[in-house]
Design a protein around this nucleic acid. Structure first.
Length: 580
RNA sequence: CGGGAUGUAGCGCAGCCUGGUAGCGCACUUGCUUCGGGAGUAAGGGGCCGGAGGUUCAAAUCCUCUCAUCCCGACCA
């Protein structure tokens, strides 16, 4: 392509409303423009990259037997009522009415639509399993869109759905899918981790996320370098407690009696600990939460934090969130800073770490007072102990002897789930098995944020001059830059290089614009083309052209026209990921 | 939805406090010079100061209301 014919509106300055690097660079490189909050137009250069990612995804999906479909973006409310998500999905679901007043939504995901298709057409175990996927834009009316296309409201997503006769067969596809995802993100040149994940509102039993490691990531992942265990931090397991020597010493002595002590104005753990001359781990915090059944309390050691998601999973409830101001004003008997597990009329759950403590401090459920010398078995009534504390860096690994957690930030680019029969049961997607019995299909679903993957690649690979594309995502492999295209000799040479590379199947851009060299070089760096061929009079008079590697800034002189033959090799040796 | 901020030319911003003919840089147009890392010079074009209402002789500037966008927190690919 000739640069002058392409619509690539590059910018010198970053737009004021972008603050992550990928967003800034995508705008500056002329890949995207914002239309409304969280809604972006994709310009030609951006689309080329997006298509690269899509194509990689397509190939890997087809490889494991996926079949591509194209599904409606506008979906009738009835379908969502069947799955019960019309009410459950909340405001994130963009609801619209047609001229007859019938209710629809703009699809945020397509479980309902795909299940509807399959239930109508698939009746026998002989037709299973089936794996369908789509690559389309979806819409989620995010509370707060941010970070450009990383968290837009309208976004390009690959979603695959599989239907099976049983859980075992679903797992088989699940594992194939995990492998396909690994291939995809490797081909995109990304540094990523596959981690254990929560299944969130999609529902289901078993789930992993694919996280691209990046400082700007919205998620935290915990992983163990020793054994390889990795999990989203919101779900990360902690190691069961081992009594420390201090705990052992305490249990060897006579347990203290429980005593009420005055702690005027001391509300936080740090204040209470300081006041009573104790350490934070000798205090037990009582955290108030609410779920669909009302209030619950969670107990964790004073130097720990509670993890509401792990607690929600322990309780098996629909939802759970920390009590808010409203709750406190409704329950006048609860005193912030002095809440304790004694005398509450709702269930109390405690972290496992609490079970090995002795002689600890709790709130006394009245202002300015705490109990000391508390013993778990003697004094407290605990519904259930479980792993509900939040994991932190340096915590011991739950899966191996002496590994410890390392914590890094990540961008969630892929998420795979085993859904079980949640949708098939609700929507009556059933089949007849060998014995003529009717069963609900078992489903899996597997998503990749395509735009987010592209943004993640930029987050991971850029410098002060602009984007550095991994070869497989690069919109062009090579850019030919004449120092002065209006010079007839240079023009000839550039046209020849361009034509021959093009014929060799190498995507090449020729910057034929009448700009000064500096402008062209800066744009080439900004849009991140892996290889720059700079053609100028001085070098050409010695029979050479300059080749510059975008990623490393290395530049070298090569004999013309031999260089044309050498380009494929140079590309191979200087791009990442290494191509076979 | 709570907290914070910003809307002035295509982009980035100043002007607002202390009302008085709307400015700067980049980009754009034309001429001359320049031409290997975002050129110099001269001349130009382009704005109902987000919108509505109010105060005032007079509003980008003060007041009220609205809309939009961004940032920080609770949700998600």
């Amino acid at each position: 392509m000739y640069f002058s014919k392409l619509f690539i509106p590059t910018l010198k300055e970053s737009p004021a409303d972008a603050d992550v690097i990928s967003h800034k660079l995508m705008v500056r490189a002329g890949m995207i423009r914002q239309l409304a909050s969280g809604i972006y137009s994709i310009l030609p250069l951006g689309l080329r990259v997006l298509r690269k990612a899509e194509q990689i995804i397509r190939e890997e999906m087809n490889q494991i037997g996926g079949q591509e479909v194209f599904l409606p973006s506008i979906q009738p409310a009835e379908l969502w009522m069947e799955s019960k998500r019309w009410d459950f999905y909340g405001k994130e679901l963009l609801r619209i009415k047609d001229r007859h007043g019938r209710e629809f939504c703009y699809g945020p995901t397509h479980e309902e639509v795909i299940t509807d298709i399959v239930r109508k057409e698939v009746k026998s175990y002989r037709q299973l399993p089936i794996l369908l996927y789509q690559i389309q834009t979806k819409f989620r009316d995010e509370v707060r869109p941010r970070f450009g296309v990383m968290r837009g409201r309208e976004f390009m997503m690959k979603d695959a759905y599989s239907f099976h006769v049983d859980e075992k067969d679903t797992q088989h596809t699940y594992h194939q899918m995990a492998k396909a995802y690994t291939n995809i993100f490797e081909r995109c040149g990304l540094k990523f981790k596959q981690v254990q994940a929560d299944s969130g509102t999609i529902g289901g039993s078993f789930s992993h996320e694919f996280m691209v490691l990046a400082e700007s990531g919205e998620d935290e992942i915990g992983f163990c370098k020793t054994c390889g265990y990795a999990s989203n931090l919101e779900l990360a397991e902690s190691k069961p407690p081992l009594p420390t020597s201090a705990d052992a010493a305490a249990s060897a002595t006579v347990p203290q009696d429980m005593k009420e002590v005055a702690t005027p104005g001391k509300k936080s753990v740090a204040e209470v600990a300081g006041f009573l001359k104790l350490t934070a781990r000798q205090i037990v915090k009582t955290i108030l939460l609410e779920n669909e059944n009302g209030l619950v309390a969670g107990l964790v050691r004073g130097d720990h934090e509670i993890n509401p998601i792990k607690m929600k999973n322990l309780l098996g409830c629909e939802w759970l969130h920390p009590a808010n101001e409203e709750t406190f004003s409704k329950h006048r008997e609860l005193h912030r800073g002095y809440i304790g597990p004694i005398g509450l009329d709702f269930p109390i759950y405690a972290d496992r770490e609490v079970s090995v403590l002795h002689d600890f401090v709790i709130g006394a459920n009245k202002p300015s007072a705490h109990f000391t010398g508390v013993q778990v078995q003697r004094d407290l009534k605990i519904e259930k102990f479980g792993d509900i504390k939040a994991v932190r860096a340096k915590d011991p690994c739950p899966r191996c002897e002496d590994g410890e957690y390392e914590v890094k930030r990540g961008i969630e680019v892929g998420h795979i789930f085993i859904l079980g029969n949640k949708y098939s049961s609700a929507m009556n997607a059933v089949f007849l098995d060998q014995h003529g019995e009717e069963n609900a299909m078992i489903m899996g679903c597997y998503g990749i944020g395509v735009g987010r993957t592209v943004a993640a690649a930029i987050e991971q690979s850029n410098d002060e001059r602009g984007i550095i594309w991994p070869r497989n995502l690069a919109p062009f492999q090579v850019i030919v830059i004449p120092v002065n295209y209006s010079n007839g000799d240079l023009q000839n040479v550039c046209d020849t290089i361009y034509r021959r590379l093009h014929e060799a199947g190498i995507e090449t851009l020729l910057d034929d614009r009448p700009n000064r060299l500096g402008v062209k070089l800066n744009d080439a760096d900004l849009i991140g083309i892996p290889l720059q061929i700079i053609v100028g009079e001085k070098n050409l008079s010695a029979g050479k052209v300059e080749i510059k590697i975008r990623a490393t800034h290395e530049s070298s002189l090569h004999p013309y026209p031999q260089v044309i033959e050498d380009i494929p090799n140079i590309l191979r040796n200087n791009s990442f990921p290494a191509t076979p």
